[in-house]
Write a protein that binds this DNA or RNA. Structure first.
Length: 658
DNA sequence: TCAATCCGTATC
DNA sequence: ATACGGATTGAC
């Protein structure tokens, strides 16, 4: 008999069903294979989860209709991970499996292994993983770039020795992180184990792919076509390559006996899967490390509150450089002050460049170095802050962010919906509120006028530059699209701080620092003339974090604040979104944990009055997270069994918790 | 009393 | 979705 997960989206059918195996399929219908089965009269896709001798089911059993392919594409390790992810995120196993295994492409199964150079380097079918002698492994870490970090060589040695160290890594400014990831991967492969590494976007993937040239690996991303993607997936699944790198879908990639999971820049919101059940790559990878006994590496220039929590709970150790190493590598960072004086030069003034930024950029250009100007994308939600001290305004009852629905309306909480009557700022006592200004446009043309005679390049959404040559030029880039400069930038200007910091988002400070550090990391060290100008008040925590290059300090501060306000990751949160009746219906059916704290409902902004949806927020202590997800999934099952049609979206720890 | 129909529930 | 069983209803 075969225990099958049927590919239907209904939560109340989220359990295995038993089928008889026709004699001719015999042992081919192995666990992990795709099958077609008759289910409630229909032919549906399914996964063989297990072969069993007897069924618990008392009624008659059907036969498997067809074996789609004898290829076991769902490994036991990934199946267990998918189950855990489904439970963590109140979703169905079938939903997670759809994310975990790419669509089949029959041609790729019969074709020979992909003809990539990295594969040929592996030297054949199963020779990809071979253990080196302990004597060799002992020296792993010496001579690598990890030596700049006191705990670095020990981390590499532990990987090479087959152990499972867990690390939160704060990369030094200018760090060649793909090279460090490649060293960690090589050490793990040397121990006879596999590696899965996830990055946020295609640009980071290209860099990592290149850094891994000497190690047999495949790169998975949506950018390659479905056939090639499946081919590469199969190469990993068949144990032909020990290392898989990719964007978030690669978090489920099968590798033989996984020894290390790694994620770069876990604060990037591209790591959050937009399809149900909305798992986050960091959480999936850490779950995977936990379940499989693998090592974990969470790296970035910045540090998220979630990563900080791993350090503070002792789940992971931090890998950070000594302060004097940081000082030696970091550029000189200066804030312009709260009310920056505009440059006297009329061209610079028209570009609204503060005089300090203008001078620093001009000096860098004169010394023959490129200048990076980071310009945030526009279109942030209108948040509300104190008119006097500009601190973001928060709800008195639940600490949610206040929002101004329209120009002259009363501000209200985006979480619990209570109006913010008689507001008093907890920081300065101010009683007036103001809508935060959205980012001012600073175009490349304006900067071109300010620095006449210097080439101006732009890198952004439409066209992302990977690199720019050495030599004087102005590079205008949106966050995440900053090109690498040969030899590093002479100056980096970080503009429009207020547009970032006043976002109606609890992660605004963290996100701002993440973007600033990513840009500032591309500057030369101070000793080589590298300078960074932040157009903001030096007293702000975000500015301090960049000025001191101390992401750990900021993360600790952020986490402490979230703890005192009752925000994730200090607590576990779920949102339930849908038509008002459906949301109420689901919550009525849910047996929530006793500690559950319900906030809302609040209307979901930007929807027409006909099909208006609203959102409830439920928060529980971290320990009750599993119970919360279980209760919500069960309630969704009750609703779907009753054929309730109104869709309700359940999200755990959503990034946009507003 | 029987068949056509409706409703709810399970789906192996 | 579709299939089935039990309840319900309507005509003889």
């Amino acid at each position: 008999m075969a225990r099958v997960c049927v590919d239907v989206p209904l939560p109340h059918l989220d359990r295995p069903f038993d089928y008889l195996v026709p004699a001719e399929l015999g042992e081919d219908a192995r666990p992990g294979t795709r099958v077609r089965v008759r289910f409630a009269g229909q032919l549906v896709d399914g996964w063989v989860l297990d072969r069993v001798a007897a069924s618990e089911h008392s009624g008659p059993l059907s036969f498997l209709e067809r074996l789609v392919s004898p290829e076991p594409v769902l490994s036991p390790e990934v199946a267990a991970l998918a189950r855990a992810v489904a439970e963590r995120y109140a979703g169905s196993l079938a939903d997670v499996l759809r994310l975990a295994v790419p669509p089949r492409h029959a041609g790729a199964e019969s074709a020979p292994p992909p003809p990539t150079s990295t594969l040929r380097a592996s030297g054949g079918e199963t020779a990809a993983i071979s253990r080196t002698s302990p004597d060799e492994a002992v020296r792993v870490g010496d001579g690598s770039g990890w030596q700049a970090y006191p705990a670095g060589p020990a981390f590499l040695r532990a990987l090479a020795d087959g152990r499972a160290p867990r690390a939160v890594w704060s990369a030094l400014p200018g760090e060649d992180w793909p090279a460090r990831f490649a060293e960690a991967a090589a050490a793990t492969v040397r121990s006879g184990r596999g590696v899965v590494a996830v990055v946020a976007d295609a640009r980071d993937l290209d860099r990592l792919d290149a850094a891994l040239a000497a190690i047999p690996h495949v790169a998975l991303s949506a950018a390659v076509g479905p056939a090639e993607r499946y081919r590469r997936f199969l190469a990993a699944s068949r144990g032909q390559v020990p290392v898989v790198v990719g964007t978030r879908a690669a978090m489920f990639a099968p590798v033989p006996s996984i020894g290390l999971v790694a994620i770069w820049d876990d604060g990037d919101d591209l790591h959050a899967e937009p399809r149900a059940p909305y798992p986050h790559a960091r959480e999936v990878l850490l779950t995977r490390a936990q379940l499989a006994g693998a090592a974990a590496l969470v790296g970035g220039y910045a540090r998220t509150a979630e990563a900080q929590q791993l350090v503070e709970t002792g789940w992971a150790k931090q890998i950070v450089a000594a302060r004097d190493t940081v000082r030696r590598r970091a550029p000189a960072v200066s804030p312009t002050g709260d009310d920056p004086q505009l440059a006297r030069d009329p061209a610079a003034a028209s570009a609204r460049l503060p005089s300090l930024a203008w001078r620093v950029a001009r000096d860098a250009l004169q010394s023959g170095a490129p200048v990076l100007v980071q310009v945030p994308r526009r279109g942030y939600l209108p948040a509300v802050s104190c008119a006097d001290c500009r601190a973001p305004a928060r709800c008195r009852h639940c600490s949610g962010p206040l929002q101004l629905p329209s120009a002259h309306a009363v501000a209200a909480c985006r979480w619990c919906g209570r109006p913010a009557a008689a507001y008093a700022c907890p920081h300065c006592g101010g009683r007036r509120l103001r809508a935060a200004v959205t980012g001012a446009r600073r175009t490349a043309e304006e900067l071109g006028r300010a620095f006449a005679g210097v080439p101006v390049r732009t890198s952004g959404r439409d066209e992302v530059l990977a690199t720019v040559p050495a030599g004087p030029s102005v590079v205008v880039a949106t966050p995440g699209a900053e090109p690498l400069a040969a030899g590093g930038y002479g100056a980096v200007l970080l503009l429009d701080a207020w547009a970032l910091l006043t976002r109606a988002d609890l992660r605004a400070t963290e996100e701002t620092v993440r973007r600033w550090l990513a840009a500032a990391a591309l500057a030369r060290p101070a000793a080589e003339g590298g300078r960074v100008v932040v157009v903001a008040d030096g007293g702000l925590a975000a500015v301090q974090a960049v000025l001191r290059w101390d992401p750990a300090w900021l993360a600790a501060r952020e986490l402490a604040e979230r703890r005192s306000l009752g925000f994730p990751p200090a607590v576990r949160v779920a949102t339930v979104t849908g038509p008002p009746d459906a949301v109420a219906d689901l919550l009525a059916a849910a047996r929530l944990p006793e500690e559950a704290d319900l906030l809302g409902p609040v209307p979901v902004p930007g929807e027409s009055t006909e099909d208006r949806r609203e959102r409830m927020i439920i928060r529980v202590p971290r320990g009750a997270g599993r119970a919360l997800a279980g209760a919500l999934h069960a309630a969704a099952a009750v609703r779907s069994a009753r054929k309730a049609v109104d869709p309700v979206r359940i999200q755990l720890d959503p990034l946009d918790l507003l």
